[in-house]
């Protein structure tokens, strides 16, 4: 029994080392913009966490829903309570793989596409997102802009407030990732 325990540990260690160099952040920024006839709503979140593995080209991003700050408190409560069910689904996430091969050792700006799973409101969607990746002196800066359709993620908007909330929400993400210790 003892042996199998060591082997499990060994396997787990392999798993860890398989990522090679990791870059990460816990202060990434995500913001969204909803444009509707009656009201434009904008919210910003400065607690986005992300990890990039430069050996496997994988990316994982996690957005704590509760950390979105709104122009007013009532909007924030409605966003969490009525639309995002943030108690049930505390975070949104994206995990995927960068399709292009990138030389992480050279400074430069690359256009990238990332294919993976976007999980918002507990509903997963296969998406390919586009953005830019900059390599700046051992730092990775990622910027991405994409659209989330509320219906794709089963976020219900009652007809009474339809004129206040857009069906498609524009999302921007900005990540400054540093080498992970």
């Amino acid at each position: 029994m003892k042996k199998s325990f060591y082997i499990t540990i060994f396997c787990l260690l392999c798993l860890q080392t398989a990522y090679g160099q990791l870059f990460s952040t816990s202060t990434g920024v995500a913001s969204f913009y909803s444009k509707a006839p009656l009201e434009d709503i904008e919210a910003t979140n400065k607690s986005v966490t992300a990890i990039i593995s430069t050996t496997t080209n994988q990316v994982a991003i996690k957005v704590p829903i509760r950390s979105f700050k709104f122009p007013n408190g009532l909007m924030e409560e409605h966003f969490n309570e009525n639309y995002m069910d943030s108690e049930k689904y505390p975070s949104a996430s994206f995990s995927g793989k960068i399709n292009e091969s990138i030389d992480y050792t050279k400074n430069g700006t690359y256009k990238v596409t990332v294919t993976g799973k976007l999980n918002v409101h507990g509903v997963e969607q296969d998406r390919t997102l586009t953005g830019t990746l900059q390599v700046v002196d051992n730092k990775l800066v990622i910027d991405a802009e994409f659209v989330i359709a509320l219906a794709d993620h089963k976020i219900d908007v009652p007809t009474a407030v339809f004129t206040k909330i857009a069906e498609k929400i524009q999302v921007k993400v900005h990540l400054d990732c540093l080498p992970k210790k």
Binding site: C11, C14, L15, A18, Y19, L22, T49, A50, I51, S53, T56, Q58, V59, A60, K62, S93, S95, G96, K97, G116, K117
Partner: peptide, 14 residues
Amino acid sequence: YGATAQDDDLLKLL
């Protein structure tokens, strides 16, 4: 496990 679950594991690291 290592081969298939890597995406998720990066998330788990988070």
